[in-house]
Amino acid sequence: MAANTEITGAARSRAATLRILPPGLYAGRASKVLERSLLVSKKMWLVFLSGIVEPAVYLLAFQIGFGRLVTEVVGPGGEVMSYAAFVAPALMMASAMNGAVYDATFNVFFKIRHARTYEGMLATPVGPVDIAMGEISWSMLRGGLYAVAFLAIMTLLGLSGSPWVVLLVPVALLVAFTFAALGMACVTFIRTVSQFDYIQLAVMPLFLFSATFYPLSVYPEPLRPVVQLSPLYHGIELARELSVGVVEPAMLGHVGYLAALAALGLWVTSRRLAGLLLR
């Protein structure tokens, strides 16, 4: 009897130390969840195509239209560059964001509320943390894929001047991961399809006001900290600097901010999935 009590006590204290993520929520099977998405995605090539076309059209518009009006801007490091080359890395990050958010919201909502896909998964060793990590990783890959396609178009149009642009791919993946994690966390709170408008309401200003089309210095001083709250802003800063080969310590701050938000999104998603499905 005494031994029994001891075991229960040990289990309790173990449970207490893992309060942040209770035991049993992670089984190291996130890759299997990702595998499922890859299998499903084989049927969805048309969706990818549409996701790539949109930012490409934007890019063309800037190259042909705006580029004629605003010919040159001062880029990172004080270098003068064409406006299209200034905007291109930002649009690439935006396409990573869009791809990730789209996947992490619409598709995940369907699986939580209608298809009961996750309930099936949770009857196996797979836990909510595995699901969150697997699904967010998949959304990241999708956003990353959009970004890579965008980079190819950029290169075709002669907008990726320096070989440094290959570094934009990992930045795009980080941006996509962060937005996928935040998007999936938000979608766990959504109950009806009409509430998706709130997500659109958040994404649109992020796209327009994250120093996407003009540098931060254009904003009045008091507004700048607000712009700097945007995760996309940090991704764009990183991408823009790297596109012209500027590397500086402040970049660590951008990476840190994005990584912190990604971790927050992952944590909230895992907790919410557990709360919704493991009642």
């Binding site: 289990a11 173990r14 449970a15 209770p22 035991p23 049993g24 089984a27 009857a123 196996t124 797979v126």
Partner: peptide, 13 residues
């Protein structure tokens, strides 16, 4: 204990 060993138990269910 399901509360502690959920994944190990579910692996055999």
């Amino acid at each position: 204990d399901p509360q502690v060993d959920g994944p190990s138990i579910r692996a055999r269910l």
